[in-house]
Simulated scan of single mutants.
Amino acid sequence: MERLVFLVGVIGNIISLLMFLSPGRTFVRIVKKKSTEEFESFPYICTLLSSSLWTYYGLTKPDSFLVATVNGFGVGVEIIYISLFLIFAPPPTRVKTGIVFGIMNVGFVGAAVGMTYLMLGGEVRIDAIGLMCSALNIIMYASPLSAMKRVVRAKSVEYMPFLLSFFLFLNGGHID
């Protein structure tokens, strides 16, 4: 049974890796054109938030090495994506992205880690972090919908990240 649990975890990690890497073509396009065009940063900010908290959960909960490593990888990849987005975004978008990034990925993550670390211990801490992660996954899985306004307005799916949406869908079905 333990072997099966590990195998399911490895399959989940493969799906998660594909999810983290799926926007790669989008960012190659952004770098080549030196413009974010009409792409949204929100899906990457939300994924970074979720990955950061899942990494903390994986480091806190015993025997959660797979959760910590794959999400730690995701943190690194999402930081690269957001950095590229900030480099190539027009100034108003850069400011908006920076503010949302600061609130969600510095403020919220810092508060969540600080509060759970200082105020809770043992299983209660692990449960609280897991509950936060699960609740925030709803935002992460819905974040590609932020591109829907643009898709509807332009009557084109050009700015809808299909691979990201697809792998978020698959990722939502695996068990951590």
Rank of each mutant, 00 (worst) to 15 (best):
I45W: 03
L145R: 04
S143N: 08
N13M: 10
R125Y: 06
G72L: 06
Y117E: 13
V70P: 00
G114T: 03
R150S: 11
Y44A: 01
R29K: 11
A111N: 07
L21C: 11
T69D: 11
L170K: 01
T36S: 07
V152G: 08
F88Y: 15
S52R: 01
Y44V: 05
M140A: 14
L4M: 10
D176Y: 12
I80H: 00
L84W: 07
A154S: 12
C133L: 08
V124P: 01
S156N: 10
G121E: 15
L164D: 02
F166E: 03
I87V: 12
N71T: 07
N137Q: 13
V5P: 00
S134E: 11
L4P: 01
W54H: 04
K96D: 14
I14H: 09
I175E: 07
S156H: 09
Y141R: 01
I129M: 05
I79N: 07
L170C: 13
G76Q: 09
V100S: 07
P90E: 14
L170D: 00
G24I: 12
G110T: 02
K61N: 08
R29M: 14
M119V: 12
S143L: 05
S41Y: 14
N137D: 13
I80W: 06
Y81R: 03
N105V: 08
V152C: 10
S146A: 14
I175R: 08
Y57T: 03
K96S: 14
F20Y: 15
H174M: 07
V157M: 12
V95H: 10
V75T: 02
S64A: 15
L53C: 08
C133K: 00
F39A: 05
S16C: 12
L120C: 07
L145S: 10
K33R: 15
V67K: 02
I79M: 15
W54C: 08
D63Y: 10
F6Y: 12
L136D: 01
L49Q: 05
K32R: 15
F27H: 07
I82A: 00
Y141N: 09
I30L: 03
V10E: 08
K155E: 12
F166K: 04
E123H: 10
G107R: 07
G74V: 01
G58C: 05
P62E: 13
M19R: 07
T116A: 03
L48S: 03
W54K: 03
A135G: 11
E38A: 14
I80Q: 01
G12A: 11
M160I: 05
N137A: 13
G72K: 02
M160W: 15
G107A: 09
L49K: 04
N105Y: 05
P161H: 05
G114S: 10
L163A: 14
E37L: 09
F167G: 01
D63Q: 13
L164F: 10
N105A: 09
G122K: 08
L168Y: 00
H174A: 01
G24K: 03
